[in-house]
Design a protein around this nucleic acid. Sequence first.
DNA 1: CTGAATCCTCCCGGATACTG
DNA 2: CAGTATCCGGGAGGATTCAG
Lengths: 128, 128
Amino acid sequence: MPDVIINKEVFYNPVDFVLKKLGGTWKIPVLWRLRKKTWRYTELQKDIAHISQKMLTQTLKELEADGFVLKKVYAEVPPRTEYSLTEKGTKAVEVITYLRNYGLELMKEEGIDYEAMMQEEAKKKKDK
Amino acid sequence: MPDVIINKEVFYNPVDFVLKKLGGTWKIPVLWRLRKKTWRYTELQKDIAHISQKMLTQTLKELEADGFVLKKVYAEVPPRTEYSLTEKGTKAVEVITYLRNYGLELMKEEGIDYEAMMQEEAKKKKDK
DNA sequence: CTGAATCCTCCCGGATACTG
DNA sequence: CAGTATCCGGGAGGATTCAG
């Protein structure tokens, strides 16, 4: 295992490389939402519970810089910004989907039925 | 996205769940080495560059507790301990392999030929 | 509405010393 | 040989305030 240093970042293996790009708490929730459609900044902020404004901005900026996400700014008042997946981002979502399925398996092994929990949550939301 | 709390750990999605199990700097390098054979503690320590004794112990302990790794202690003097993959661990390595291949792709896109770099390193080692 | 700029907290992982 | 125990720094991410 060598020391691989690129752009002043040290990483030890290809998986590490992926996790430096897609890891952290917020990249995945954002990419996951973008998988089907374009989202506005505020929509994302409302939909992703607990994300701070700082982390949403930072996450989107990094995803854009790494070529996973496309940012479109409309010169309107008030301003509108839309985010969508690039081709590279679409590929990343495939990987995330794979990882997600494995996650669901692992959770099931521990007796956690994630999808049932999600439905519960959705119902609560509706009741409000 | 609900707040899912299990064993006092909060996580936001199934991918997060996986990364809580396999994430961090050292779980993957360890599991990767165990994929083909059993390793002793000291062998792992020698082979994984930069890993501290603390992190190796901690990593192995967590992997064992999560059921990915089997620990076998031989009551000899000096003591001998061997680590191997469980069935669950073998499944995890499949996921890691998938992730690793994606990592290699990403690196190639950025003009990084990881496998060539590895061969360079191997040659250097031999020369010494 | 879509950010930028600061300050602060927590915890992962490193360094070092000790043990059965 | 295979660990424990302790102390410590840095960076990810939260809270708050300001701006175009």
